[in-house]
Simulated assay, not measured.
Amino acid sequence: MLLAIPKEEILERQTTFINRLHEHQIDCAILFSVTDIFYLTGFHFTPTERPMGLLIDSTGKTHMFVPALEHEHTEMNAYVNHVHSYPEYPGIRHPMEYLKDVLAECHFTGKTVGIDSDGYGSPMGYRGPRVSDILSANFVSVGGWIQEARLIKSPNEIELIKESLRWSHLALRLLQSYSKPGLDAIEIEGRASQEASLTMLKALGQNFKAYSGYGNSAFAVFSGQVGPMSALPHAITQSITLKKGDTLGTGSDAAVYGYHSELERTMFVQEASREQERYFNLMVEAQNVAFRTIRAGIPASKVEEEVQRYFQDHGVTHLTRHHTGHSLGLLMHEAPFFDLGDQTILEPGMIFTVEPGIYVEGLGGFRHSETILVTEKGMEMLTYYPRDMESLICG
Rank of each mutant, 00 (worst) to 15 (best):
S391Y: 00
L31S: 05
I92N: 14
N156T: 14
L55G: 08
R274G: 13
G121P: 00
E49A: 13
P90Q: 01
V360P: 09
V354F: 01
G119Y: 10
W145N: 04
Q238G: 13
E347W: 07
E70L: 09
I56M: 08
E159D: 12
L346D: 08
D27Y: 02
Y385C: 09
G297N: 07
R93P: 06
R93N: 15
M283D: 14
G143S: 15
S223M: 10
L319P: 04
E304K: 09
H73S: 02
E12G: 14
H44M: 13
S239C: 09
T250S: 13
A196E: 05
G213M: 07
E304G: 09
S179Y: 00
L174I: 06
G315H: 01
L103K: 05
Q147I: 11
S33H: 13
K202C: 12
G251L: 09
R13I: 05
P181K: 01
E306A: 12
P90N: 09
N288K: 08
E105F: 07
Q225V: 03
S230Y: 06
L201T: 05
S391I: 10
K377R: 13
Y310R: 00
A68T: 02
K61P: 00
F311I: 00
R20F: 11
H314V: 08
A4T: 14
C394Q: 12
S33K: 13
S252A: 15
Y178V: 01
G119N: 11
L69W: 06
G365L: 08
E347C: 12
H169N: 08
F65M: 02
P155T: 15
E49C: 03
G329H: 05
S154W: 08
